[in-house]
Amino acid sequence: MFEARLLQGSLLKKVMEALKELLNEAAWDCSDAGIQLQAMDNSHVSLVSLNLRAEGFDKYRCDRNLSMGMNLGSMSKILKCASNEDIITIKAQDNADTVTFVFESPDQDKVSDYEMKLMNLDQEHLGIPETDYACTIRLPSSEFARICRDLSQFGESMVISCTKEGVRFSATGDIGTGNIKLAQSAKVDKEEEAVVIEMQEPVSLTFACRYLNSFTKATSLSKSVQLSMSPEVPLVVEYKIEDIGHVRYYLAPKIED
């Protein structure tokens, strides 16, 4: 059987919010290493990769590798029934066709369980090549969310340009043009407030704002976000999930034709 107990149930609620705008359904692949999820959005322009390590769970048991196809809309409805303080347990029998979510209140005076039907998803797994990125930018996640929200008012595309001076986000459209320049933080007193840029070579790429805004639904997971860019390859937007894992979004660029 499979059983994973997470003391900080709120993390799973936040993961749900981070996935459900982009994905309708996905396979949760469980092994003794942990839980992995990888899926493309419907338009096949972006890919989401989630990893939750077994060690991050209060209790984790996976007798046999298990892939659980879930409708994320339904799963989101169930997770909305959990309070932020609840302990959340996911469990399933081997080759079961349902999964059960158990929510325990901190003082155990209320225990809820919800059983959900699983789906058969023949999801193909994509290989993500190891890449040594030309630029990586770490910045406060709230800052990135604000930039995406503000600039997406000006155009459907955003240009992200990274040089040794800093990183510039730009968008242009009918009402005009917006540019936001972030300089590398001079002093890094509070780690998560810093803007840290590692640049091997300057890079400038164009991306669709709507996907970037969908990625920022993960903002509540981590105080900082990391962007990785190389010429002509997908952007990576990564949010760490406490000490249990991460969610990574890959977005294909828009190319001058």
């Binding site: 322009v45 797994h125 090549p129 669709a208 997908p234 828009k254």
Partner: peptide, 14 residues
Amino acid sequence: KNQQVKISKFFHVA
């Protein structure tokens, strides 16, 4: 005009 590319152009079925 910028053309949106598919992610499957970069990542192939493992």
